Simulated assay, not measured.
Amino acid sequence: MTYEYPAIFTCQRGDSGPLTASFVAPAGEVAKWAEVERLSHGGGGHQRLRSESRVRAIARFLEQDNRNTIPTALVVSLRLPDIGTPQIGSCGTIRIPDDVDPRPGLVIDGQHRMYGAESFDSSTPLNVVALVNAEDEEVAFQFLVINSKASKVPTDHVKLLALHYAEDALAERLRSARMVLGRHTFVGVADSSPESPFFQAVEWPTEPSQADADRSNLVRPASIEQAFAAIDKKKIPDLADDDSLIEFFFTLWRTIKERWPELWTAESKLLQKVGLVAMTTFVIDDLIPLVDRGDVNLADPDATRVEIEANILDYLDPGFWQREWTAKSLDTSAGRQLVVDALTTVRRNMRREVDWDTGVGLLAGGDDDG
C-alpha cells in the first residue's frame, strides 16, 4: 500500500541543506511507515527509550478536553528513492509505501507524540516535517540539535501568559493536562487528578465549603510534596520528566492503597507525613539498583507495579503501621530513617519466614531476635 499526502517541499538552505516536506498524516499511518530506532551503546539508533508514562500522558491530554491539540510537528527521515524532483515552494503530493523493509520512515523527534496520539485515536492528524533522502549523518545531526537546543518555557513566562486569559477556565485545562508550574504544585496534581490515589484527599489549610463535601482530607499537602521530593532528589533518568514522575508516584501509591485498603484512613500512620515519606523512600531506594542494572523501567507503570507488588509489598505487613511505636516525633530526617530501617527489618524477617516484628525496635512489644 502507498500513502499519499498533500505536501509542500522546501530547501531551507538552498543546495546546501536537505530537502524537506511538510504534510499532515494520521498518527496510526505514521506508525505504519515510520520506524522508531532505539539508541544503542554501539552507536546505532537515535531515539531514547520509549516511556510508557509519557505515551499515556499524551493520550490522557487528548482525552481530557476536546480543545487540546498537538500543533508541534513530528520530525522524520524519509527514504524515497523514486521521488524525482519536487517543485519547491508549491503544494504537491508525497507518496510513502508501507510494504517495504526496512520502512521508509524513521522518527527523529516526536515518538511519544506519535504513540500517544495513536493510543488515543489512530486517526488523529499530526503535522509532519520530513527530511527527504537525507544522509545518515544529517539525520543524527538533526536529532542531536533538536534535543539539545529545545528548552522548556520558563515558569514565570507561563504564569504571565495565564494572566491574559480567564483564570478559572485556564487553570482547569492546565490541571487536566497535569501541567506543573513549579514542582511544589505536584500536590495539586495529586489532589485534582481522578486517577490519583489521593484524589480529593489533601487537607488544604482553608475553610471548608459546600464544594468540599466529597473530600476525605486524608493527607497534608507537605506530606505529598516531601514524598515527591524524596523521589526527585534521586535524579533517576526514567523519571526525569514531570509526566513520568507523576505516573510513578500514582502507580506506587495506588498499588499500596489496593494492597492495604484498611490503612486508608486519616488516623493511619502510613498516611501521616513520616509514614508517607518513609514508605516512598523505602520503595525508591529498593528500586534504584534494579533501574541501574536495567531490570526495571520506572517509566513503565505496569512493570513498576508488578515489581512493587511481588518484591516489596509481599514482604511487608500492614500491622507495622497499626502497632504502637516506641519513638515519637519522627518527622525529622533521622526519624524517617528509623522507619525506613524498621521496614527493612520487617522485609528481612518475612523473607526468612520468621515473625515479621522480630527485632523491630521501633515497635512497642516487638519480639526480640532469636
Rank of each mutant, 00 (worst) to 15 (best):
Y3G: 09
E4F: 12
P6F: 08
C11K: 15
F23C: 08
A25M: 10
V30A: 10
W33Q: 08
E35R: 15
S40Y: 05
G42C: 06
G45K: 12
L49D: 14
S51H: 02
S51P: 00
S53P: 04
S53W: 01
R54E: 03
I58M: 14
I58R: 07
F61H: 12
F61P: 03
Q64R: 14
Q64T: 13
V75D: 07
L78K: 09
L78P: 05
L80A: 12
P81I: 14
P81Y: 14
P86I: 14
G89Y: 11
D98K: 11
G105V: 08
G116N: 10
S119V: 10
S122E: 12
S122F: 03
P125Q: 12
V129T: 14
L131Q: 04
V132I: 15
D136H: 06
E138P: 00
V139M: 04
V139F: 00
F143K: 06
F143M: 05
L144T: 12
D156P: 00
V158T: 08
V158C: 10
L160Q: 11
A162C: 10
H164W: 03
H164A: 15
A171P: 00
A171Q: 11
R175T: 09
A177D: 07
M179V: 13
L181M: 12
G182L: 04
V187G: 03
V187I: 10
V187M: 09
A190D: 10
P197T: 02
P205I: 12
P208K: 13
Q210F: 10
A211N: 09
R215A: 11
S216Q: 13
R220Q: 14
A222N: 12
A229F: 00
A230P: 01
K234E: 03
L239G: 01
L239R: 03
A240G: 06
D242Y: 06
D242R: 11
D243S: 15
E247V: 04
R254M: 11
R254I: 09
T255I: 08
I256E: 02
E258C: 05
T265H: 02
T265P: 02
K269T: 04
Q272V: 00
K273I: 01
V274S: 04
V277F: 01
F282T: 01
D292E: 15
D292N: 13
G294V: 07
L298V: 08
L298S: 04
A299Q: 03
A299K: 02
D302K: 15
A303Y: 00
A303G: 07
A303M: 07
R305M: 06
I308W: 01
A310D: 13
D314Q: 08
D317I: 09
G319E: 09
Q322Y: 02
Q322R: 15
E324T: 15
W325N: 14
T326H: 13
L330Y: 07
D331Y: 04
Q337F: 05
V339M: 07
D341Y: 02
A342L: 07
L343N: 05
R347V: 01
E353W: 07
T358M: 15
L362K: 11
L362W: 07
D367R: 15
G370D: 08
